[in-house]
Structures are given as C-alpha cells and as structure tokens.
Design a protein around this nucleic acid. Structure first.
Lengths: 193, 193
DNA sequence: ACTGTTTCTTAAGATACCTTATGGGTACGT
DNA sequence: ACGTACCCATAAGGTATCTTAAGAAACAGT
C-alpha cells in the first residue's frame, strides 16, 4: 500500500512523528476505483474521508429537474467527500464518481475521530485543510456573484490548468453553472480574440 | 466585559474547563463599533478573529468596475474575518463594515495561535467551526450554480429569517448576486402569488 | 422637526444565458 | 476492428437578468 504521498502531504502542513505515521499507515486503506464507479451516492451516509492517490473524481448533485451540477473535482493529492453528511451522519445529497480509473486512500469516520483524540496534531492539520477549503469556496462564491461566465471560465483555466486536458467541457460547464452549448460559444469567442 | 455569549458558544461545541475560560476572558477584547465603521479594509492585513456580541456586519469586496459584492453577513453569535488574509498574512481584498452600531469580541492572531498550542481543545473547536462554514459555503455554491435568483432569494429568507427586517434589500441583492432593481421585480412577483 | 441621503419601485431597451434540435467527430468497451 | 455512446459545435428563438433613468417613500443625523 502506498501511503507515501499522503504522509508527504501531512508533513508539508505539520511534520508527523513516527507514531503518527504508523497510525496513518494502519488506518488509511487503499482502494481501486474504475471509471464511472461511485464512491458515494445520494441517500448513502458518507462514512469515509478520501484522499486521491491517482486518477480523478467529480462530486455532483442532481436538482429537481434531474440535472447534474458539479461541485468539485479532485485529482492527485486532493481530498474529497461530503463533509455535511460525514459530520451529521445524514444521508448525502451528493454523488462522487470516478472520472478516470483511480486509486484512493480512505479512512473510516470512526478511525478519523480516534485520530483526533489520540493524536491531537491531526486536529490542527484538518483545521488547516478545512480553512484552505473555505478560502477556495469563498473565492468561488466571489466569482459566482460578480463575474460573467466567460470570466469564470478563464479564471478556472488559470486556477486549474491541470484540468484542461483531463475533464470534458461538459463537466467544466456543469462546474461553472452554464450549459455546454453556452460554454462552447464562450470558447469560440475566446479563440477568435 | 461580556464574554459569556462566547463561552456559551464554545461550550456548545466542546465544554471548556476553568483554565480555558480564563484564557478566553483574558485574550478576547471587547470593542464597540459604530454603524458604517470598518473593522477591516482592502489592503490591510486581517490580524483579528471577530465574534459578534451585538449588532450586524457585512463583508464585501469591490470589483474592477467599482461594484460592491457582499460575501457574508454576521449578527449575534457569528464569526467574521478574512481567513485568507488572516492565515497568509497578506493584504486583504475585503471590507468588513458595521451595518448597525455593534459590540464585538476580538482575539489577535498571535494570541489565537498560542491558544491552539497551549489549549489543544481549541483546535477541535475551530476545526468544527471551519467545517461548518465549509458546509454553508458549499450549500451556497450549490444554489449559485443551480438556482434562479428567485429561488435563491426564497432560500435566503428561509435560511436567515433574522435578516429580513434587518438588512436592506440592496445588501441582500448584492449577497445574492443580482441588481436591486431585479430583486425588486422578484419581490413584486412573489407578493402577487 | 428639517434636510439631505439612502432605499425601493417602475419601466424600456440591451445583454447574457438557456432550450431544443441537429450533425459530425471521437473515444470506449467488447 | 466495430459499433455505440459520448462529445463538441452551431444556430434560432426564448427567458433571465442588467442598465439607465426617474420619482416617491423612508430614514438618519443634527
């Protein structure tokens, strides 16, 4: 099992001692997920926190009209999960689907709670993670309420250039909150200028 | 100085012992802020974390066209601050302005960091706070990319009924990402039905 | 109580974005 | 290697939201 990227990731935030590394190795389980497979579906309770080793995921929800809306993508060294469902232990409204064949590391909610009690350092680490995620979401909210779709698309490309050749325009459109047809028009306009 | 609401607030998340209460009383400072006064302006580094005892604030940014966009409101028992600037110690792009005469409790960044080291329980508390904030922002992102302005307004009223008689429609429109004129049209339509 | 400022509303014309439909190209599973 | 499903582009007509301008009502500071 390959926990090295995860341990490196934690080390960058706050260096781990050996005992903490052992815990990580013991309680994060590697799992392979095929393209199109779900690691969470609406109605299920999110019982794992997931770290992506390889591959790509999207998290989305389906509105009353049956339309999908992407909330987040996750590639190597990103976290993904429905925090809301995870914490409240309520049925999730979200889907998390592998966009590519992927490899992930997962920790069970129960084990993560023990982690927080037995190794307090992880409270600091996960606080930092949550705060970083907040900053990202706040940034996205700023974009959503103040920018046009074209500006949002350009910002998306600048912010996540890794996604450009990896995620279809349909998925990007869904993330930006526009129809694929309109994104196509935007791309045409950008190409011309 | 009235730290009781803050201690009650912490106790609800994770009960504090006496030593921790003393720390809170020692390091959170009460401050009175008049209507229209700023506790943070663009260009400043956000050096405090703020808890609202009384009154109401709005946090906003100004886009390249000079337009204001509200990111968040905060009333009694809410936190407010530019986390991004607070953590990175970079100049903020945001303004935080008192909408009413207000009373707040503030802790300096330095003291909050000591708090995390000396009283690890606060790592858990602030991790929970950050996670709650994430859930809220995620919810708002969902709304932004999938709902019409009318739906967003109705959801806003349902979620924050306290704001209805307290915050002007201009401020609500800015929070929702629409013009005041259009919000006015929405309100007219809702009133009819 | 007065006065200046801010707020809310209305309306007309403009722009951003959506819906539906269609066709050609490309990638995936077998 | 094949067929099928998916992806991307284009276009026409429709809806949501913005811009500008103006007036009436409510409010804040003195």
């Amino acid at each position: 099992m390959n926990t090295k990227p995860l341990i490196d990731y934690f080390n960058k935030i706050l260096p781990l001692d050996d005992e903490e590394k052992v815990f990580v190795e013991a309680f994060f389980k590697e799992r392979r997920v095929k393209r199109r497979q779900f690691i969470l579906q609406e109605g299920e309770i999110c019982m794992h926190n997931t770290f992506v080793l390889e591959g790509c995921f999207r998290m989305y929800f389906i509105d009353d009209k049956g339309k999908e809306h992407n909330l987040q993508f996750a590639v190597e060294n990103w976290w993904i999960g429905d925090i809301s469902s995870f914490h409240a232990e309520e049925p999730s409204k979200l889907y998390i689907e592998a966009v590519e064949n992927s490899i992930i590391l997962q920790i069970k909610k129960e084990d993560q709670l023990n982690l927080f009690v037995d190794y307090p350092k992880f409270n600091r680490i996960f606080r930092v993670l949550a705060e970083n995620a907040m900053v990202g979401l706040q940034q996205r909210t700023i974009q959503n309420i103040s920018s046009t779709a074209e500006e949002r698309y350009l910002d998306f490309l600048k912010r996540y250039p890794q996604f450009f050749n990896r995620i279809s325009n349909i998925q990007i459109a869904s993330y930006l909150g526009v129809t694929p047809e309109f994104l196509s028009a935007i791309r045409k306009k950008i190409a011309k200028s």
